[in-house]
Amino acid sequence: MKILITPKSFKDYKAQTFPLLEELGYEIIANDTGKTFTEEEIIGLAGEQVVGIIVGVDPLTEKVLSRCRDLKAVSKYGVGVDNIDLKAAEKLGISVESAVGSNNISVAELAIALMFEAARKVSVLSANVKNGGWDRVQGIELTGKTIGVIGGGQIGREVAKRAKGLGMFVVLYDPYFNDSEFLRQYGIVLCDSLKAVLAMSDLISLHLPLTPETKYIINSDTLKLMKPSSILINTSRGELVDEESLYTALKEKRIAVAAQDVFSKEPPSPDEKLLKLDNFILTPHAGAYTAEAVERMALYSTQNLIRMLKH
């Protein structure tokens, strides 16, 4: 019985995790390539005798899952499962779980960091000084601003709590949210209209899974609702934003800044036109990449896999 482990950073915590699998008799196939696996590479490694996969962002499509004939369980190293064909997994009898609660704090803190970067342009100021300059760039305060948090899951909640701590007015949009005690405790307003939240907010922070309903939730029409001074933060999935429409909005100054940790194609092409804009910020999908979150993801995903395989 074999286990395939695809995430590149998982090896940093193999001392804590590999023995948990090995003592149960599993042989481990680890990713030592430093790269994300392709469909064919996964099939080549997991086509036979692999009963479990701990997966990062590698594609587990219907094609891949159907070719892994001994596969019983998939454990996501992280929370988002849009790289896994859940319908195919269900049809094939393959259990799937994600490491819920492992990285919500880390991603939320990066979202806040991107807000400060957009508001105060810290990297621009630092680069200017290191290049021999001493020019200041005027920023804005976050205190007193309205932030619209789109999505009230674990990460969205952590962002909302931290925004309140910064003295911001927090409006939450999530049609499935029903935790009135959380709203009362932190003084957060739940709004039932996405359009209203986009129109009233100085900052928008996206915390949604990628689904057919949420794809391109930020598009040419919704961007027109936002203030010209507004800041868009996206630490969820690149495909939540129509990048062509975002480029136009930023280029024409219809919104002030967009700061993202995600992109539709990662990494983007060096010729990507959004990267040429001064008011577009992109970090390399690093939201969950902290020592604490990576360790939790490794442990949670290993424990989840063991539990699924025991059933």
Rank of each mutant, 00 (worst) to 15 (best):
N219K: 02
L45H: 03
E48L: 09
D135L: 09
S75I: 02
V55L: 01
S229Q: 05
M226I: 00
G152T: 09
N234H: 07
E272K: 04
T17Q: 03
E27H: 11
G78W: 11
K145C: 08
N83H: 14
A298H: 04
L246Q: 04
T214D: 10
I84G: 03
N31R: 05
Y289C: 11
T283E: 06
D271E: 15
F263C: 10
G148C: 02
H207S: 06
A15Q: 14
E41C: 07
V241M: 02
A30C: 14
P212M: 00
L71Y: 12
K8V: 15
I140M: 12
V262D: 02
A118D: 04
F37G: 03
A46D: 06
P7F: 08
P19K: 00
A293N: 11
G93P: 00
K130A: 09
V197I: 15
G139M: 13
I147L: 04
N104Y: 15
G144W: 01
S106A: 15
L183V: 02
I231A: 00
L210C: 05
A30M: 09
L277M: 10
T36D: 09
L114S: 05
V81K: 01
L250G: 00
F177Y: 11
P59L: 07
L183K: 11
I231W: 09
Y173R: 11
G44W: 13
M226N: 13
T146Y: 02
L277F: 03
C191D: 15
A288D: 13
G238T: 02
G139P: 06
K195E: 15
A259Q: 03
P59W: 04
A160Q: 01
G238S: 07
N31H: 05
F18R: 13
H285C: 01
K87L: 15
A163W: 13
A89G: 06
L86K: 04
Y289I: 15
G133S: 07
A73C: 08
P7R: 08
T235Q: 05
R157A: 12
D82R: 02
I105W: 09
D70V: 03
F263L: 11
L21M: 13
T143S: 15
D58K: 05
P19C: 07
S236G: 15
G47R: 06
R237P: 10
D85P: 00
C191Q: 13
V241K: 10
V122E: 07
L60Y: 03
F169I: 14
